[in-house]
């Protein structure tokens, strides 16, 4: 009967462990892979990631990808501050994580702009290596995020083990 005395925040946090509302800020080839993982072949709604919301204040999962320059860094910080807390952040691809494809700009910032790492702007929870990563990697990052939000074996693992036995 503990659910009778449960607080509203506890109920919401329990529901949000397996249900994410994404807000995608991505450019370049990583955004194609993110779109691919949301479409029919790699359907990320199976894993609990909802449709892309129209409002960042309703989202709690920020997906970053692509080259982050000074202007985009300001936008990302502005959006992240408005998003619902607790906010999970997934950084996808080598550009957003370390900026290594544009390492000439890291060494010497020029008129073409400069590259900023995602971890310098917002606290990143999950890193997905790759340039760009496969949609499977993006799906496994969501599984890792759910493992971080709720430690222990997930429902999917329990069910697959029960089916195997």
């Amino acid at each position: 009967m503990t659910w009778l005395t449960a607080r509203y925040e506890d109920v919401v946090s329990r529901l949000e462990q397996n249900h994410h509302f994404p807000w995608i800020m991505s450019v370049g080839c990583c955004s194609h892979e993110i779109q691919n993982s949301s479409l029919a072949t790699y359907d990320w709604q199976r894993l609990g990631v909802d449709d892309v919301s129209t409002d960042p204040t309703q989202s709690n999962l920020l997906i970053l990808g692509g080259w982050i320059n000074t202007e985009r860094a300001q936008e990302i910080k502005y959006v992240y501050d408005q998003m619902r807390k607790p906010t999970a952040v997934i950084a996808i691809g080598a550009c957003a994580i370390s900026g290594s494809p544009y390492k000439a700009l890291i060494d010497a910032p020029s008129v073409h702009g400069e590259v900023i790492k995602a971890e310098d702007i917002v606290p990143v929870d999950i890193y997905v290596a790759g340039c760009p990563p496969r949609p499977e990697s993006i799906l496994s990052s969501i599984l890792e995020l759910q493992k971080k939000l709720k430690p222990g074996p997930s429902h999917r693992e329990v069910l697959s083990e029960a089916l195997r036995n």
Partner: peptide, 8 residues
């Protein structure tokens, strides 16, 4: 193997 995702 595809590229791995890991917690920060």
């Amino acid at each position: 193997e595809h590229q791995t995702a890991a917690i920060a």
